[in-house]
Nucleic acid binder design. Structure first.
Lengths: 203, 203
DNA sequence: CCTACCGATCGGTAGG
DNA sequence: CCTACCGATCGGTAGG
């Protein structure tokens, strides 16, 4: 993470992530970050150009990780169900491995400058398109119901993203177990399937 | 909404909602709100005690509406599936009827003072408990799979809440149609059920 | 990485 | 609802 950076800059970014997550980007001051890094506010500017550079790095580093993850999934010869399971697993893996950066990535990208925000939205849309492609494949193969692809992909993603709100490493559920539960939920829903049945079954 | 308030105060609250939604609470200044209300910043203080009173009113008014909605659902003799459908319908109804306040309610409650935040979290938990009760009832009745109740309730809610991100009144989907699609998704998931079958069906 | 400091903006008050 | 203004804090720069 944060490749081609000095260790000190990586450290500052890591501290900034935690503060942005806790207080929100807009409510976090450069002085907060300096205090966490145990330097005077002005000293930060020998490492960074400004506050927004920190937000920018967090958002685009995470976007890159998510895009690589969905790229992997779409390069593999799986059916739609297997692809969905892998996409969910990768997504949960990233959220739990980078909990601070993930919250900032999901919530605070709005504070990017207009240009960078546009760029960010394009990357995010490309990621969502990865999920849409999986849903579309499932519908085409007859494995999934004939849902609205955009609607379904966004519903899936939003049901995954709330995990950042409660996940703590000490928790009993491992990332892969969370992913399995969510995959099952997305695929089969809450309702119990019909029990073993004799004779004509109409759905 | 905003009962027992002067019309002018209601107007200010309505303007504040839109600004908070657009820029976020922390990044919205009292001067922004004053400009929207076409008065000098100091004039706002004859209507409100401070900026936080606006956030407080928005968050607790919405909490009240959501709690009333889930209360209705739990007072009715429905089975779990019907209750879930009604809870989803009511939830989407509120989100789409109050889109600005809903975003602030879902996102900016973190900026309440510590005391009020604690109070707010209690109300929100009571609302979530309404959903947990429905899931629990479904599991007890044998209508739902034996899921983790807390996990399922939060997954359902997060899949509902993202609707505020894309809903616009001009859109082709009516609130009740959105609710129906989401209810179906939550109950049966993406995967197609087995087709009409003769003979023994094993799940 | 520091001291010293900038102009701008913040939420809010006094007094009418 | 206004004018006038407060002290605090903001992101950031100059110069070493």
């Amino acid at each position: 993470m944060f490749v081609s950076m000095t260790d000190r800059k990586k450290e500052i970014l890591s501290l900034a992530q935690a503060l942005f997550r806790e207080k929100g980007y807009a409510a976090t001051s450069v002085r907060d970050i300096a205090a966490a890094a145990q330097v005077e506010p002005a000293s930060l500017y020998s490492h960074i150009k400004g506050k927004e550079e920190l937000l920018d790095a967090i958002c685009f580093e995470m976007a890159d990780k998510f895009l690589k993850a969905i790229g992997e999934v779409n390069d593999i010869y799986f059916d739609a169900v297997q692809k969905l399971a892998m996409a969910v697993k990768n997504h949960i893996q990233l959220l739990t491995e980078h909990p601070d950066a993930s919250v900032v990535f999901l919530r605070d990208w709005r504070y990017l400058s207009d240009d960078r925000k546009d760029e960010f939205i394009k990357l995010r849309d490309r990621y969502e398109e990865g999920f849409r492609a999986i849903v579309r494949k499932g519908v085409d193969e007859g494995a999934f119901n004939e849902v609205d692809v955009r609607f379904a992909a966004l519903t899936i993603l939003s049901s995954l993203n709330w995990v950042v709100e409660w996940y703590h490493e000490e928790g009993k559920l491992q990332p892969n177990e969370i992913a399995d539960q969510l995959t099952k939920f997305v695929l089969t829903g809450l309702q119990k399937e019909l029990p073993v049945t004799y004779g004509l079954v109409t759905n």
